[in-house]
């Protein structure tokens, strides 16, 4: 009794149901659409929301890229890619510009996405108001009543305590002047990329059973006060030790030989592209080798 898996794992009925939730999400930007999240062959909290979106929208001719915290080769990204590939046979890529669908955990790639592309973000906690109110029944009502005092209060309390807003990743945003949305734990650095994005942004929370979206060319503002403006992570004066890229999100590493702090592009495929730009084929191989 051996069973073959259906194209893209799900039965067609499930895919259709998820696509309906996606359509609704696109129609109401920033609104969390509840859906009957399936159990996946990867663990809850490991990207099952994103994976369900990817599997329900992917077609045979699509090219897929999966990144985890910026890296194509991160173990979980590899595992997700492998699963999609095994059940669909679609082509995989590391190059951002070659991908039709990009599933990502906690990063939006450095190079601008196009209107031909869809980025699928994995979401652990879709509810931006969860920190102020634990009960779903109440937060749902707060959204419908446009009651976002709690979200503002979080920022206000930080200013009171620390003299400035102290959010890390997942800084809440206003979508289309209506819903306050958790952009998933992308760094603040990536928040501006959601605003007027050319690409469709889909967000999936498998465990919390919610799908939401930011359609292309939608206004997205990070929550901030006039006198305490929104700021992104600062990498002032720092650059990537490999490709010398600046104005990108950098990982902080420790040089094992010197013990000094060095920086490296978080977006690995961006870094690789830059390094390959000005070298010939022979050197290219060397660079890739030295990257490991």
């Amino acid at each position: 009794m051996k069973a073959e898996t259906h194209f893209a794992f799900f039965d067609e009925g499930s895919k259709k149901e998820i696509r309906r939730a996606i359509m609704k999400a696109v129609a109401i930007p920033g609104y969390q659409v509840p859906f009957a999240s399936r159990e996946m062959p990867i663990a809850r909290g490991w990207g099952t929301g994103g994976l369900q979106i990817t599997l329900s929208i992917i077609g045979k001719s699509d090219v897929l890229k999966v990144i985890d915290q910026g890296a194509d080769e991160s173990v979980n990204a590899v595992s997700i890619k492998k699963l999609v590939h095994e059940t669909t046979g679609v082509e995989l890529t590391d190059r951002t510009e070659d991908a039709d669908i990009i599933q990502s955990r906690h990063r939006i790639p450095e190079i601008a996405l196009t209107k031909e592309q869809i980025i699928v973000l994995q979401v652990p906690t879709p509810e931006p108001l969860r920190g102020v109110e634990a009960r779903e029944y109440i937060t749902k009502r707060m959204h419908s009543e446009y009651d976002y005092s709690g979200a503002w209060l979080i920022l206000f309390e930080q200013i009171m305590k620390y003299g400035k807003t102290a959010t890390a990743a997942d800084h809440p945003v206003y979508v289309n002047h209506r819903y306050v949305m958790a952009p998933s734990p992308i760094p603040r650095f990536d928040n501006p990329k959601i605003h007027q994005s050319d690409a469709l942004i889909l967000l999936g929370a498998g465990r919390e059973k919610k799908i939401y979206a930011v359609p292309p060319y939608t206004n997205v503002e990070s929550l901030a006060f006039d006198d305490y403006p929104f700021t992104v992570e600062s990498f002032e004066g720092m650059h990537c030790h490999l490709c010398s890229g600046a104005d990108v999100f950098l990982d902080e590493l420790i040089d094992h030989t010197t013990g000094e702090t060095i920086y490296q592009c978080n977006d690995t495929s961006y870094c690789m592209e830059r390094m390959n730009e000005n070298v010939n084929e022979k050197e290219k191989a060397e660079v890739e080798g030295s990257y490991a």
Partner: peptide, 19 residues
């Protein structure tokens, strides 16, 4: 699932927190 997801890398989010 959610407890075990803490084993996943959180480099970006942690970097953001550090900042």
């Amino acid at each position: 699932g959610f407890i075990s997801h803490l084993k996943l890398p959180h480099y970006v989010t942690f970097q953001s927190k550090l900042d």
